[in-house]
Design a protein around this nucleic acid. Sequence first.
DNA 1: TAGTAAAATGACTGAGTGGTCATTCCGTGA
DNA 2: TCACGGAATGACCACTCAGTCATTTTACTA
Lengths: 201, 201
Amino acid sequence: MSRTKQDVVTEFRCAEILDAARKIFAAQGFSDTTMEAIAEQAHIAKGTLYLYFPSKRDIYLAALRQGIRLLNDDTNRKVAGAAGVQNQLRIFVTTRIEYFEQNREFFLIYHSEIGNLLPHPGKQSGEIVELYLQQAHMLEQILRTAADKGEIRDLRPDATAFAVCDLTRGVIMQRMLGWSKAELQDDIRHLIDVIWRGIAA
Amino acid sequence: MSRTKQDVVTEFRCAEILDAARKIFAAQGFSDTTMEAIAEQAHIAKGTLYLYFPSKRDIYLAALRQGIRLLNDDTNRKVAGAAGVQNQLRIFVTTRIEYFEQNREFFLIYHSEIGNLLPHPGKQSGEIVELYLQQAHMLEQILRTAADKGEIRDLRPDATAFAVCDLTRGVIMQRMLGWSKAELQDDIRHLIDVIWRGIAA
DNA sequence: TAGTAAAATGACTGAGTGGTCATTCCGTGA
DNA sequence: TCACGGAATGACCACTCAGTCATTTTACTA
């Protein structure tokens, strides 16, 4: 409550920087992105970046975290409002695909960061991984409950949850690369069709 | 036929360089990899690298191409030797997962390069993409044939083929990240179980 | 063994970058 | 209108690295 003006300006600048960063990091990757380029995209000078973030890596991680949080919140909210496992699955998939189609740049960062986790299994920077796994665990719970109720077969819920995530990511990628010529709705229908037959009781 | 010795030495050096490059690129990513590091790993001097490859990017692409070719050949051969769609699917998945478990470093390059294609859809460096799609198309053919024979449902074969590839890649990733605590055989069984039920007639 | 040419080397260069900080700008309050 | 303090700036520095090339080493032949 103290310095409204202050905080508002800071928040605004941070948001601008993260938006700019997301675009540039997505287009160039972490190493090939220069602070100069981020500054330019954000319409501020390079030195100003360092008033709001201590380092390049920090900007990168902040942009990533922000994106995942928004995606997760969105997904959670929408899935919670759906009834029936099949519908929940459909909403889960749809929400995520649409989010990424709306935030293409973010998907690129998201995807490449997973790749960066791979060489260092175990000593992964906790929070990002946690945010990443959170959605799979949410799905896992849904599947577990459905299995208990006999709505779906008794499969390993963890593996099945990952499978849904993988299929979702696959559809996003094929669409981004222009490898899918179908309508979004058709891709989603196909995905749900296959997975549902695959797991239904 | 001319200079056997010559060619043999050159081939040997190239192979050594590509092996070294694969390890380093996988661990550090393209930008963070230094020619010095590759040279060291290959037990030669930096200048020597330039006797065999014109640039850093060329080494990278050569390593990637080589890896994909080996994988594709392996997959093609083994799948061709299998009878029945379900078996072919199982062999496809198994071969690829095993190849990547045996060549972890290569998977990292493979995965990150897909990410690099994303920001530049359309103007993708032809050959790599072609090699990449080749396997999906092979699967697609198998599925198309099976659908004609009525062994599986009449689904979009392209989307289904991609789905199998995505699930395969997913399993590899979960295993690499230590997120799957199951035996390899269990992961494969689960994958085939779900996808087969999903597509069987 | 001496002579030669190809192969290998690694010090060096030039371009580029993350981060710093002395200086400038600007909003505010008197 | 002026003076003050925090926000913004961008020239600069220290460092990294792809690629080069004069020099050294090796392999082969006569």
